[in-house]
Every structure is written in C-alpha cells, then in structure tokens.
C-alpha cells in the first residue's frame, strides 16, 4: 500500500498535463508572410498573402478566474474558473488586455496564429474532425482552457476553431467588431469555424458565446 500513492501520483502527472495557471502563457508567432482569407467565403475573400512582424498571442482564451480578478462583477457558474470567460463587451476585453500590458490581436494576427503560414483550413490541418465538437444541446458548452487535444495551431495556440468566439481589435464598415474562431450552430448540431471565418458583433453587447485572448508585440 505504501507504494500505491507515489504510483498514483506518477500516473496522474503522466495522464494530465500541467494546467496553465493563466492564459498569459503566450506563444510566439515569427515575422513573415502567411496566407490570409478564402475566395469561397465572401466575408473572407480574397485569399491573399500578407506579411506581419513578430508578435505573441495567448496560448488560450482568457479564463473566468483571470477575468474576474480584474473585473470582480464578472459572474460565472461555480466550477468554471478555468473555462473561457464570456459575456464581456468589446471595451472590457480591450481594457483587460491593456491592464495586463497587452492588446487585442488584430484580425490578421489572429488568423496567422490559428492557421500558420500555408493557409490551412483549420488550426490542425485541412480535415474536419470526425467527431462533433459539441454535445447535442442548443446552448454553448465551453471547454476548460488548455485541454484541447486536436484544436492546436502550428504555433501551439489552443481552442481557435471551437469553444467560444473571440473579439479582435478590428471592425467592419458598419462599426461592428470582428470576432473569430468559435462554433457554428445548426439546430442541435455544431461545426468548427474555419480559420478564415468571422462573425460581426455589436461591441457594446454582451454575448454568452463571446470571449477573447490577448496579444502583444516586441
């Protein structure tokens, strides 16, 4: 019996990777060109090459615990400390990033961080996963940040094709802010967003499906 506890401890450490304490574990996205957009999607056309300077982006969406530490009125269900924070306005997301010495990523930065340099459809490649991303349910089911197994970009950023949509710094011509990388809903079925897809949202509204991650330059 004496040897059982260390054995369980070793097994636990082997099975469960370290939980990121906070989303400010940033990944580096090197300077250089990448493929942005897609010709088949009117909101994302045209497919073109764009060059960006080096930047860093949070490996995960900002969690409830992190957001509530700076916005104490942020309420969320018990037990979801390490799930993506949602329901903040665009201004609150921007302010959070600025308080942590960062900023919201531009749309181009977000897309490069998600799909790498060669224009892949999803962060992990071009194949849609066989399993549905979401249970049979009409509402949003978030995933604990840092636990995505396949939703990982070439630079190590996680949760960019599913979980929640993410505010970016950019807006469309109507003044709506552009958000990236969540789930599309059809009745009770769901599909991952492609890396070039986007939604437009009124910035002063709170949406239960909207979160964010931060970025910074050198």
């Amino acid at each position: 019996m004496k040897g059982l506890f260390p054995a369980i401890l070793v097994l636990n450490l082997a099975c469960f990777p370290s939980i990121p304490a906070h989303a400010s574990d940033a990944v580096e996205v090197p300077a250089g060109p990448f493929v942005m957009g897609d010709d088949a999607d009117p909101d994302a056309a045209p497919r073109r090459e764009l060059t960006l300077e080096r930047f860093y982006i949070d490996s995960d969406e900002t969690s409830n615990a992190e957001f509530a530490a700076r916005f104490p009125r942020h309420a969320y269900p018990a037990g979801l400390d390490f799930h993506p924070a949602t329901g903040m306005t665009w201004d609150e997301a921007r302010e959070y990033c600025e308080q942590t010495g960062k900023r919201l990523p531009t749309e181009a930065e977000w897309e490069k961080a998600a799909r790498g340099t060669d224009g892949g459809i999803y962060p992990w490649g071009n194949q849609a996963p066989k399993n549905p991303p979401h249970p049979y349910f009409s509402g949003l089911v978030t995933r604990r940040v840092g636990f995505q197994k396949y939703d990982v970009s070439p630079y190590g950023a996680r949760g960019m094709a599913g979980s929640v949509w993410e505010w970016t710094a950019d807006a469309n011509r109507d003044g709506k802010k552009i958000a990236r990388g969540g789930l599309w809903n059809l009745h009770l079925d769901y599909e991952h967003a492609r890396a070039f897809e986007k939604i437009f949202a009124v910035p002063d509204r709170r949406f239960p499906f909207m979160g964010f991650r931060c970025a910074r330059s050198d």
Binding site: S138, G139, L140, L183, W184, F207
Partner: peptide, 26 residues
C-alpha cells in the same frame, strides 16, 4: 439551454425560400 441566446450558425428564413445563410449570433 436555459439562456437561449441565438448562437452564430445557420438560418433558413421562411420569407426567403428557406435559403440557408450564416447568422452571427444575437
């Protein structure tokens, strides 16, 4: 869901021949 907010997804508007289109949530 108890909340019931319209999520980003697909819509089939009856007044537009049910032609499928993207909606952006809310």
């Amino acid at each position: 869901s108890v909340d019931g907010t319209i999520l980003p997804g697909w819509d089939h508007p009856l007044d537009r021949g049910k032609v499928r289109r993207r909606i952006h949530g809310g």
